[in-house]
Amino acid sequence: MRTRAEVRAFLDSQVGKIPQHPAPYQDLSGQCVTGVKVLLDFLGVPNPYAARGNAKDAGDTLLRQGLAKPGPGWLTIVVNRTMGNIGGVTYGHIWIDLQGEANYESNGARALYMTKNTRPYNQGQQYINLDQWIGEDEVKIGSSENWYWRFNRFHHQLVRNADLPRSVFNQIVGLDAWKVLESWSDHPEANQLIKWQEIGERADKDKWDQQIYGLQDDLNIANANLLKAQQQLGESVSKEELAKANQAIADAQAAAKKAREELDAKLKADAEADKVGQGFLRWLIGKITGGK
């Protein structure tokens, strides 16, 4: 499929040239029908140089063969059936019109040569279109800051959570935006980011931060109780008080142990639920327990 930009550029490249017809009908080079045939060839239409009648009939043939659709489009073929009366025979005239942009004709205003904007649209009597052969225009990545901003954002979202290096940006300027997004979306790190996203969603939903702070508080209380019990032990004199202090220490140790076990169990369960998160959870465990 050709894009509109490609069709424009192709037709402009033909202006001032004689459209060439291949063998065995090289003598048709430069004819108005040949001007349409070279376009058909460019568009990839089957048998572009087949004989489809003189100008007045060629539009009907293209419709009959399903190669064009009735009515004007963006890429319109215009036929006038009454022009081109030569030696008492009317052959008609055929040309190309890009809707609202330009028109191109061969052997019309200038013998055998392709000219641009020399044939008024309203001289047409039949309008058919070749839009079925036109694909979507590419959107090319520009070099301006808004393009950098947007693709830097895509980079964070699809490749890794880091700024897009300018050197990489410079390499994608001028490329088809869709193709670049497609390749980034297929990047191995993009899949990793999805997994991290899932962990993040679970952490947010289950309020891991609050759970961690709650368990940290329990641990701190247990540690404080232990310290207090140790102080009491130092100050105690009687046998009875010593026994009481020992019991307090044992209780505090048990509470601390319990809190730590709960925290470890919670983090371990989450780590086992998703191995991808282990690195992150190990970091959390280390952070909470001081690397123990």
């Binding site: 087949a50 489809r52 009648g53 043939t61 063969q65 081109g84 030569i86 019309g108």
Partner: peptide, 30 residues
């Protein structure tokens, strides 16, 4: 140099250079 301003018909020079198409062969296509 020919006049390539808009004309109501193809130019006289174009008429002089005209070559008709061979018979349509579309019945054998598709």
């Amino acid at each position: 140099m020919e006049d390539i301003t808009r004309q109501p018909d193809i130019s006289p020079a174009a008429k002089k250079a005209f070559v008709p198409e061979p018979p349509a062969e579309d019945e054998n296509e598709n």
